[in-house]
């Protein structure tokens, strides 16, 4: 098998960065997330490939939090598009866990299938290669196995890395994977490596039947109780590897300006506010319910898979201890009065 020795990891990242923007999990000062390898500062930043995961997911690489779409010039009553910014520059997400790969595959469903293609997303994704990092030891809040993710064989990865102690086994999975492998071929060795033992999941989650059951639970009283502590900040949606909602806004200076999109969150009141001033999700409970129905029911109905990937980030960061695992449990246990 092909193996990238850990001693050659930095050389490999340097080489890949010659032609690609390479996003790597790192601790960057107070920040924990995917940042470009070129921004890595020796002695200050720390590579996090051997940690379970980082707080900010790699979705930023294909759906940036703020993305310029096109610039505008108005002349009299005419408004003309000056320039569009579909960006297909080559990027590599290096070392994504299966949950985070699944987040991007779910976004592919949203932005590239069902008869509509988002040209901005399509451009970024066309230039993007995913090098996954197979996960052998689930963490305290991990439940990707229950959300149809195989952390050892992440579907959609172009290359899969397997941490074998002093090196990474390098498994090519696609043509894109072949192409990036060619860039560092001289750094890979052909040798045998012992793969780590697969550890069991600590969280036991049973999602079976939840999407179907939720169909008749829109008005169930459990939403009042579960949503009570929620303060409707957007932290869970912004650290989530699969939340993809965005808003399109404009900035104008006189005759010139540009349109951009920026992540939005179903947790915000303004998100569902309508032009006439009404809001179908005016109260906290309704916004809370929307988030979990989207994750666990609506997405499954439309795309055949849940929108939660079981990464556990929202469970860790939520200031009021909203736990999606407990919500799945509560739905399973709930009684439905016909």
């Amino acid at each position: 098998m092909k193996v990238l020795s850990k001693a050659k990891l930095e050389a490999a990242l340097n080489k890949l960065s010659d032609r690609n923007e390479v996003f790597v999990p790192m601790q960057k000062g107070q920040q924990s997330g995917y940042f470009t390898w070129k921004s890595f500062e020796n002695g200050q930043d720390e590579l996090m490939l051997d940690a379970l995961n980082v707080y900010q997911s790699p979705k930023n690489a294909v759906l940036p939090q703020t993305e310029k779409m096109y610039s505008i010039k108005s002349q009299g009553v005419e408004v003309n598009i000056d320039q569009t910014y579909e960006d297909a520059h080559p990027t590599i997400i290096f070392g994504a866990r299966g949950c985070d790969v699944k987040g991007i595959i779910a976004m592919d469903d949203v932005f590239l299938t069902r008869g509509y293609e988002d040209s901005f997303y399509k451009a970024r994704r066309s230039g993007n290669t995913i090098i996954a990092n197979a996960c052998y030891e689930p963490g305290a809040n991990c439940f990707c196995n229950a959300m149809e993710v195989n952390s050892l064989e992440p579907v959609g990865a172009d290359v899969i890395l397997r941490d074998a102690g002093d090196g990474y086994v390098w498994e090519v999975k696609s043509d894109k994977g072949e192409a990036v492998t060619a860039l560092i071929a001289d750094l890979l060795e052909e040798k045998e490596a012992k793969l780590p033992e697969v550890k069991p999941f600590i969280q036991k989650v049973d999602y079976s039947g939840v999407a179907e059951k939720l169909k008749s639970m829109f008005d169930h009283p459990l939403w009042d109780k579960l949503s009570q502590p929620c303060i409707n900040c957007g932290m869970c949606t912004y650290v989530c590897p699969s939340c993809y909602c965005f808003d399109i806004q404009v900035k104008m200076w006189g005759e010139e300006g540009y349109r951009f999109r920026a992540w939005d969150s179903c947790m915000f009141e303004e998100y569902s506010r309508e032009a006439g001033g009404g809001n179908p999700r005016g109260a906290s409970k309704e916004r809370f319910r929307q988030r979990f129905l989207h994750k666990l029911e609506f997405f499954k109905e439309r795309y055949g898979t849940p929108l939660c990937t079981g990464c556990g980030r929202c469970i860790i960061v939520c200031p009021t201890d909203i736990n999606i695992v407990r919500i799945i449990d509560a739905v399973k246990e709930a009684e439905i009065n016909a």
């Binding site: 924990s32 720390e46 996090m48 940690a51 379970l52 556990g312 980030r313 469970i315 201890d321």
Partner: peptide, 14 residues
């Protein structure tokens, strides 16, 4: 701080 404890428990940090 329960959040600090949750971070320690979550295993995302070294």
């Amino acid at each position: 701080d329960p959040l600090a404890a949750a971070r320690n428990h979550g295993g995302f940090s070294k």
